[in-house]
Design a protein around this nucleic acid. Structure first.
Lengths: 93, 93
DNA sequence: TTGACAGGCAAGTCGATGCTTGCCTAACGT
DNA sequence: ACGTTAGGCAAGCATCGACTTGCCTGTCAA
């Protein structure tokens, strides 16, 4: 089982989560393309693939196989640990 | 300005936050002692000092000088970025 | 004033990690 | 069948980050 906090430590991985939050069920190549065009990240496919593996180990991303495509889904459930561990002070108005 | 996510990536730093959440306004030596006795962490003072510097740069810890003592305080405000960036799915009952 | 105590600064070591490179397997279309 | 497309595996490199080591500054008490 991976470390949620370590998974969040990398900026590229956080951008991948942003992408999946905006558009669910993307393939690896889609994520690569959109990272390049919309976020200005010029990373190779392998680099992204390894990042996704880390996110998957942390439970932040789940995958679904379909033929030769592999769709990725965002799962924010592990993020509950953050707020559970250190209760966030309420916002003032 | 430091990176909140990178600051949370290290287990020792997370334990320091736990300690400050449980007992506020501790000095560096107090933190060292309690990490050793209560959490089984045998880190040197310098190591802890550097960790606290990272937490401080991330805004998770604030300090208050008083004579030769320096008291540390937990500030969970930066953690809001986590839940703000990726809305956490509601818990099912 | 001198020693003990709380903390800071900086260089060096070493393992972790992000990235590349090269090659491989599997599914689909024509 | 064959080429293309989607993805995987593994070794090598290079940088980053945690930790140590050694020494220095500032505060307080006797």
């Amino acid at each position: 089982m991976g470390d949620v906090f370590k998974a969040l430590a990398d900026p590229t991985r956080r951008t991948i989560l942003d992408e999946l939050a905006e558009r669910d069920a993307q393939t690896l190549f889609e994520i690569c393309a959109r990272l390049a065009t919309r976020h200005g990240l010029a990373s190779t496919r392998q680099a992204i693939s390894q990042h996704i593996a880390v996110l998957e180990a942390a439970g932040l991303v789940t995958t679904r196989r379909e033929g030769r495509y592999k769709f990725h889904h965002l799962d924010t459930t592990p993020l509950r640990e953050v707020t559970r561990r250190w209760p966030i002070t309420e916002e003032e108005e």
